[in-house]
Amino acid sequence: MKIRTLKLLVKEGANNVVKNKLMSFASTMTVVVTLFFLGIILLIAVNITSNIEAMKRELRLTVFLKIDVSPFHREEFVNFIEEKKEAGIITDYVIISKEQMYEDMKQILEDEVFLKGLTVDNMAESFEIKLANPDDSDELIKQISEFRGVNSENGIGYGKDELNKLEAILKVFNYIVMAVLAVLMVISVFLISNTIRLTVFARRRQIEIMKYIGALDSFIRWPFIIEGLLIGFIGAVLSFIFTSLAYSWIQNVMNVILTNLNLATLSILEFSPVALQIFVIYSIFGVIIGGIGSFLSVRKHLNV
């Protein structure tokens, strides 16, 4: 296709959008609504994921040594931890000595009765280890449990399971979201294809004339496809604007709620770092929805 022809076809397609104001508006709005839901759901998922990741980073692996650990076995374990720290797998660790543990116990138990008979020697030394990557935890726990100085039976604790449950719930949530989005998209495609069908119908005489003059099928089809693509893209841009407005409002409200609930460790992501990605996703989806919608209609109703 020659450049001047392409220009002409784009112009025709754009003219169609402007001429059929009402239908263009209706189908643009369906794209806006679909993408708006897509965006909000996406942002919710991103927020949940990022908060889970943040919690994972804050997680510490607690390892208790045996009460009667020998200095050699203790040394062996400390060397291992140091090694892992140098390798970057462990970012940091704290040693909680027997004495420290006894003091903590006193605080927790308060009542002297429970402390009777407990001495510093009844306490076990423990390590609080922070991992660089929470996903390494399984491998590390396996290695640690093999040390003779470690109380491997019930002395290793990691709160990952709870988070895993949360992640599993998130996964289910994602599937539901995808299903809802698929339905919304089918609706959008259907509505756009209807809009294009009406344009095709309104212009059937022109199409007929073009056929008599000897226009190629592609020449007749492209303006309609372009019309769909434009509707999709305009819908994407509008939806992006609405999403950013809605999100900043939600962000403010949520921050107030989280502060009031003393959940300030949870944070709502800023919009600007993900704005470009959201815009690209919107544009791609908008154009795909518009393209498929018009293509279906043109194929079905443009019998050239």
Binding site: R205, Q206, E208, I209, K211, Y212, I213, G214, A215, D217
Partner: peptide, 22 residues
């Protein structure tokens, strides 16, 4: 073939009773 029809029509000029102008 369908794809050749436009070229056939370009070799013809057509005039209708009802004009068919845009």
């Amino acid at each position: 073939p369908r794809s050749e029809v436009p070229y056939l029509r370009r070799s013809l000029g057509v005039v209708f009773q009802d004009f068919r102008l845009l």
